[in-house]
Design a protein around this nucleic acid. Structure first.
Length: 336
DNA sequence: TCCATGCGAGCTCCATTCGC
DNA sequence: GCGAATGGAGCTCGCATGGA
């Protein structure tokens, strides 16, 4: 059943049928009812392909994440997908696994499907390269100099984590993280943690590690980290700020496997407020990213760019828009 | 290899009808 | 006469298909 069939059945033209769907107020209520009735009788089903062909609007958005192993990415994806109700975008998702050539191929594939914009969570391609695709792009929690982005205030997150550990009465505050360049938002997390400790004269150490890209590698590296902490700070009450909740949970499991519980001398805090932080055997204190708001802001920012491109005389953004959201500290059992 | 055609819906421009 | 509602023609989009 097509517009032509509906037009023939109702006696209206194709134009009027089109208006019924796209600008119903331009048709009388009586005629709207006639057309609505015809749709029911004829059992009309919307033809999205025809619509895409006609106006070029696929309502599809491409998403590239590094992996689905990290709880942060799966949780963020869940929130991005949930924006469908408000914005109507459908999402095609690729996991790049930190391979630049693979990600470039995925982007080409997404653009070939005429996705209207891209949300990039992976760190592999520079924002300069992404900007050269000349499509609406929003990045989340990554280097973003040349493209629009939504990030959490990582500096504040670092300060919040250090504050909690200091208030827990820890003798030494540790922050384990990867070796980020200073263009990555997470770098500021390290800075915030370090600045707070130095300002307040707290003994601390930044432990830069390459945690790997899967559970096995993470587990092995964090086991080594724990061993080092035990050897170096044997008699001290240790506060450990892990780079994310997935890694905090692995550390927690390793400690519990060794001691049967979480000893009083260990305080752990994660980052993100991923589901795993709530589901852990001892719910993990975390610096929560406002996942729902980040996803909402990202899609809003993308929608803004997409709408502008559809105008007859689109005005490109004078400069990329960068939104920064405040982290929310969530106290749970691992810092009691 | 090239060209014409068809697919379904959107859109624009202009014309027509109708009711107040 | 005016404005709102509606009609109609013609073009567009990207790709597959088939015939020359």
């Amino acid at each position: 059943v097509t517009f032509a069939d509906i037009a023939a059945y109702t006696g209206f033209s194709k134009t009027t049928i089109s208006r019924y769907f796209n600008n119903p107020d331009s048709i009388t209520v009586e005629n709207q009812e006639k057309i609505a009735n015809a749709l029911e009788v004829l059992d009309y089903k919307e033809n999205k392909l025809a619509r895409v062909m006609a106006n070029g609007k696929t309502e599809m958005v491409g998403v590239i994440i590094p992996n689905l192993y990290m709880h942060y990415y799966s949780d963020m994806l869940d929130h991005i997908i949930s924006t469908y109700e408000e914005y109507g975008y459908k999402f095609i998702v690729f996991a790049g696994n930190e391979d630049a050539d693979v990600e470039r191929r995925y982007i080409q594939e997404l653009l070939a499907y005429k996705t209207e914009g891209l949300i990039i969570l992976s760190h592999t391609l520079s924002s300069k390269e992404l900007a050269e695709y000349h499509v609406p792009i929003v990045t989340i929690e990554r280097e973003d100099e040349y493209v629009c982005s939504v990030n959490t205030d990582n500096y504040m997150g670092g300060v919040q984590a250090a504050t909690v550990l200091a208030k827990s009465g820890c003798d030494i505050l540790l922050h384990a993280n990867a070796d980020f360049p200073n263009t990555i938002p997470a770098y500021k997390r390290i800075q915030g943690f370090q600045d707070f400790c130095e300002t307040n004269g707290l003994e601390h150490c930044i432990m830069i590690r390459n945690f790997g890209a899967n559970f096995e590698e993470n587990n092995a590296e964090i086991a080594k980290l724990l061993q080092e902490i035990e050897e170096t700070y044997a008699e001290k009450k240790v506060g450990i700020f892990m780079p994310n909740d997935t890694h905090a949970n692995i550390l927690l499991n390793l400690i519990i496997r060794k001691y049967g519980t979480l000893p009083e001398r260990y305080k752990i805090i994660g980052f993100d407020n991923s589901p795993v932080s709530r589901e852990a055997i001892f719910p993990i204190t975390t610096v929560g990213q406002q996942m729902d708001k980040i996803a909402q802001e990202a899609v809003e920012l993308l929608s803004l760019q997409i709408s502008e491109r559809k105008k007859r005389r689109p005005k490109p953004l004078a400069a990329p828009i960068h939104k920064v959201l405040t982290p929310i500290l969530i106290r749970r059992e691992t810092t009691k």
